[in-house]
Amino acid sequence: MLSPLHKQLLNDFQQNLPISATPYQDIALSLGVTEDDVLLAFQELQDQQFIARIGSVIAPNLIGVSALMAMAVPTENLIKTAEIVNQYPEVNHNYERDNRFNLWFVLIAKDKSSLQTVIADIELTTGYNTLYLPLIADYFINLGFEIDFDD
């Protein structure tokens, strides 16, 4: 079960972890608990996989070049195709979605020409064409994801 402290740590520190020598101490002070309480609660959240990590999210396309890709794969070939796609280190998300375009993955490469090379190679090894859907504009202003802890 999540304690009130767990919930506060999940909800209130998604955006701006204090950039100080002692961020957990700063959090503890702001919540009126001890640093050890905060460290223990974060450890529990990590152990139980409520949080992936406490770290940075890097702006898309500031580093390297990325693109969302989609493929329409016959159901009977989906898993095999997904496994081929997964073998490319440039692939970092790969999902099935309920659509005629049923395989969706994100590619990241160091520049546009390496990205094109990987795309051509994936099309060759899987035997399917791709939709190439690079980011044009990011409208999202991240105000944090407010978790609803009810039900």
Binding site: F13, Q14, Q15, N16, L17, I54, G55, S56, V57, N142
Partner: peptide
């Protein structure tokens, strides 16, 4: 460059 720094849920 760092879009956000914090808890990744």
């Amino acid at each position: 460059v760092i879009k956000r720094l914090g808890v990744v849920v």
